[in-house]
Design a protein around this nucleic acid. Structure first.
Lengths: 342, 342
DNA sequence: AGCCAAAATGACAACGCTGTCATTTATTAT
DNA sequence: ATAATAAATGACAGCGTTGTCATTTTGGCT
């Protein structure tokens, strides 16, 4: 049926090993044999059998992307970025959405890596920040790359990519302050996400720099959801000393806040400025569109995936792996939810 | 390192073939040997090597999900549904986002199935409706299941799942009519999507049933995007005989229309009723929330995937495959964008 | 007990590739 | 030219399964 390495070898008049060398670009093949073999490969439309390859080389080339994140856009972007790099490197991608709050998530991941025979994992928050999970993976000697917002207390020789939410939050808050706001509320998402505290800290730092006292009562704890935004708007707008601006931990919360403000007949941005975070597509589609911070999710994913693949290669050949970490800073995007003149 | 079938066989005191029988649930093993083997498997934490298995059985158990759809929520839901069924059946899933409008998309898919050695494909619109693509797949004897909105002119013995957009659009339009509207505009998405024409036809049918003459000028052609909605609002609201209601082909367009209406100071739903389609999360998060049609994407995906797996099994054992097609009808969800009293 | 069919189990090749090591061929230095 | 070395190629075992077919065991009958 399908061409095998044997049929290619016969057609090219060489041994199967030489074909293997060509396919794997080992480089130790004479130009003219190389050409003959390539010709034969093309003629027979030969594709190496993955199963045979994996079996013989005792290594798979499938990565897993594990995530628990409600933001569909983020996930889709991540997937695309990871896939791009996978394709370029002849890796495949298995996706594994899961529930980070589940009791035995660590075991689930270990089992999954095991049964799917994965070469490594790409972990995005919050999984990438859960010591228990990382610990289990390390114990089983599973390779992974992490995408982190802010430094991790959990160090290892494995690669990771940093997204500096602190600075981005700092910039957003500074922007609000620059608009003349002094009463700025902060609506937090789940605290299990490290980004939540990073963003809160960025917010605090900007206040401090502007000598605006931090007011605990202006911080509302919630989840990364529209509902949190709606409820928070209700709370904030009923306060005696109403805030004039809100920094929501993500766009969904911000959209909810906007919704809540409108329900109360509060004009945005005149009576209340609202900023989000993440630059989701719908941050552009609310009325008015939301000021937010934009991160290059696709690039982040690519960077993480290349690191992982490099790491895996180094591990296989037992050569040295240079753990050079890339850092990304989400960029402030100003839209009319915080600026009247826009 | 990892346990193999051999080590399990030794521990259990049987031949590797018997272990294989147990693992594959062939059923021809005596209860007590079965138990001994299972015990050994558990003790050694044995997981069959996928590569060896695939190689020996000459069949992979990896499905591909191919899509080109801008709706992140839809894709995520589809992925989850497909994955659920895959996991239950020990299949794996490879995702393949692509560009349906690319010149050689058909070839790309064929190559991809080839190089990734896929067992079959799950196709969602618009790929599932492109004769050229299907033709190429058939030629290469590639198995696939299609998710279709409305009957397909391209028939084959392969399974498919129907989503009746016609009826759903009919219901939405009827709802608008029931609210007293007689001038109802229709904003279309890309015509490459069959769902677009299906929805248009449903709209027409409902008008007809209510004896409302179909007015060509109330139909706007666009894309499934927010921008289309914004622009269409502009056009529609500048007409001499303004429509009082809009049926947008999906929620994103509807959100854009809403945005456009607001820009013009038009009150929704009082001066303009707006309905969308798809029940995206953000249809709940606009102000006012959007009336829409909700489809059980997850279930649809599951249904499609089971069909495909059944088909593959039947094909392998050369037994008969019963092509029983399931049909889903998106349900009307009424929210305040079309109903004042809500 | 003795026979037979059916059920249970095992021996072993094969799947298509890579890794190891031996062999051949080309290249360089003398 | 010749030896010494490097580069190119090949032979063949093995990777961990499943499939085929042979063999052993079991249970039901006489």
């Amino acid at each position: 049926m399908a061409a095998t390495i044997k049929s290619v070898a016969e057609l090219a008049g060489v041994s199967i090993k030489t074909v293997s060398r060509v396919v794997n670009k080992e480089g130790t093949v004479k130009p003219d044999t190389l050409q003959r073999v390539e010709q034969a490969i093309a003629e027979l439309k030969y594709t190496p059998n993955k199963a045979a390859r994996d079996l013989a080389s005792n290594a798979t080339s499938v990565l897993g992307y594990v995530y628990d994140n409600p933001n569909a856009y983020y996930i889709i972007d991540m997937q695309k970025g990871i896939l791009d790099v996978c394709r370029k490197n002849n890796f495949e991608l298995l996706i594994h959405p899961c529930d980070a709050s589940s009791e035995n998530i660590a075991q689930e991941l270990v089992d999954m890596v095991d049964s799917a025979q994965l070469a490594g994992l790409v972990l995005s928050p919050p999984l990438s920040e859960m010591p228990d999970v990382l610990h289990h993976l390390n114990e089983k000697n599973i390779s992974y790359v992490r995408i982190l917002s802010g430094d991790s207390e959990f160090s290892s020789t494995l690669p990771y990519v940093l997204v500096n939410d602190f600075k981005a939050a700092f910039h957003i808050t500074e922007h609000l302050i620059a608009q003349g706001h002094k009463h700025i509320a902060f609506i937090a998402g789940e605290v299990i996400h490290k980004s939540t505290t990073e963003r809160l800290n960025g917010y605090k730092a900007a206040l401090k720099k502007a000598s605006i006292p931090f007011d605990e009562s202006l911080v509302i704890e919630g989840t990364y959801s529209f509902e949190t935004g709606v409820k928070s708007a209700d709370v904030l707008l009923s306060m005696q000393a109403r805030p004039t601006a809100v920094f929501a931990c993500n766009d969904e919360i911000a959209a909810g806040t906007l919704f809540g403000a409108r329900m109360k007949g509060v004009d945005v941005p005149k009576d209340l400025a609202i900023a989000g975070f993440e630059d989701s597509p719908f941050s552009r589609q609310t009325f008015p569109p939301l000021t937010t911070a934009s991160q290059p999710t696709n690039e982040i994913a690519q960077s993480a995936t290349s690191s992982l693949i490099q790491y895996l290669r180094a591990k296989k050949t037992k050569s040295h792996f240079d753990n050079l970490t890339q850092t990304f800073i989400p960029q402030l995007v100003v839209r009319s939810s915080t600026k009247v003149s826009l």
